[in-house]
């Protein structure tokens, strides 16, 4: 049975005086225990809103959430605020994008770890401190005992992201959501953090939802990949299938716009033309149509459904032909 089952999740932002904005629409996916699932898409495609909705962290006023999110037989969307607080941090952990601002600047790192241990694992301050030092050691912080009494500003971005990972995993959640955890970091640090994350989740058998705009990260990490565009999932496939032959023109374009080391000299990179601001409404047709090389009349007039096709889920009228794909090895 799935650990997390997201069915038809929708998020509409409504504010007085503005048109309602659908940020997430009909998103369904599931996560098996211990599995790593990718959520990929460019900035503004609704990845963060999806993750915040799962965690119950969207503002109560102004965001209308529909659908269902089942976590181990519990419907999360209808839980009371108090019930949610008991589960967050204990069953579901989250790591955010910006490690520089995600720690409280005025209290010590130690207190920020122990407060979670005391809260969810019923430890005394003393026990929690011992555990906290162990956690910091596990995420690779040298001299963890001393770190406990230091403040966030005394640490680099990479170190702070390690601390945040330690905090998120402190109560051994069954599911960790990482929302672009490396976007704010230097490239070399990115690789370290990613390998730390993947080591930790496989050691502890934690399921992971990896949110990123970077297909390269997904390639190294995820079992299953959901590609989002304009608030909807447009392609879902096992990692291998996706990189072997991406079928959605958007996924295909993403893969082609990654520079490859073994590409023949002089072969131009082919970025996806246009930007999200060119999107049309999903109700009208395919949101990606204005930017799509394969678009035909039907794409402008009829919204495509998410359908099983070629061992994957695909939302496209004119998918990329089979022979025409980028191979995984090329990445």
């Amino acid at each position: 049975m799935a650990l997390l089952d997201v069915r038809d999740l929708g998020v509409v932002f409504k504010r007085k005086g503005t048109r309602p904005f659908t940020a997430v629409d009909g998103v369904s996916f599931s996560v098996e225990p211990g599995q790593t699932v990718g959520l990929v898409g460019e900035s503004g495609s609704g990845k963060s809103v999806t993750s915040l909705a799962l965690m119950g962290l969207l503002p109560k006023r102004g965001a209308e959430i529909s659908g269902s999110v089942t976590f181990e037989d519990t419907e999360l969307l209808t839980l009371s605020d108090k019930q949610l607080r008991d589960r967050r941090g204990r069953d579901l952990g989250m790591v955010f994008q910006d490690p520089l601002s995600s720690l409280n600047p005025v209290i010590t790192i130690g207190l920020q770890i122990t407060e979670v241990l005391e809260r969810h694992r019923g430890m005394s301050r003393k026990e929690a401190r011992v555990e906290a030092a162990e956690l910091l050691d596990r995420v690779g912080l040298p001299d963890p005992q001393r770190r406990l009494d230091e403040y966030p500003h005394q640490h680099s971005g990479g170190m702070r992201q390690r601390v945040l990972i330690a905090i998120a995993l402190a109560c051994r959640p069954k599911l960790l959501i990482a929302d672009e955890p490396t976007t704010a970091l230097d490239v070399t640090i990115q690789a370290q953090i990613l390998s730390l994350l993947s080591d930790l989740v496989s050691e502890t058998d934690t399921a992971l939802i990896m949110i990123t705009h970077d297909l390269g990260i997904v390639a190294g990490l995820c079992d299953n990949v959901n590609v989002m565009y304009g608030g909807r999932i447009v392609e879902r496939a096992a990692r291998h299938d996706l990189f072997e032959r991406s079928r959605h023109p958007y996924t295909h374009g993403l893969l082609q716009s990654i520079p490859r080391l073994n590409a023949p000299r002089g072969e131009p990179l082919t970025p996806i033309r246009g930007s999200v601001s060119d999107n049309i409404e999903w109700e009208q047709g395919c949101a990606f149509a204005p930017r799509c090389p394969n678009a035909t009349d039907v794409c402008w007039s009829e919204p495509p459904e998410l359908k099983a096709d070629d061992g994957r889920m695909l939302r496209c009228h004119n998918p990329v032909a089979l022979g025409d794909a980028v191979t995984e090895g090329a990445l």
């Binding site: 965690m55 962290l57 949610l84 607080r85 008991d86 589960r87 967050r88 941090g89 204990r90 952990g93 989250m94 955010f96 910006d98 601002s101 995600s102 720690l103 409280n104 600047p105 005025v106 209290i107 207190l111 407060e115 979670v116 809260r119 969810h120 945040l164 905090i167 998120a168």
Partner: peptide, 26 residues
């Protein structure tokens, strides 16, 4: 609406603690 308060909320930290430890001192 700051990141660290969102992060603390995502960890299930109690409202009271969030107000007195995370919001007020800042």
């Amino acid at each position: 609406s700051s990141d660290h308060v969102l992060a603390a909320t995502a960890l299930g930290v109690k409202r009271k603690t969030i107000v007195f430890r995370h919001m007020l001192p800042n």
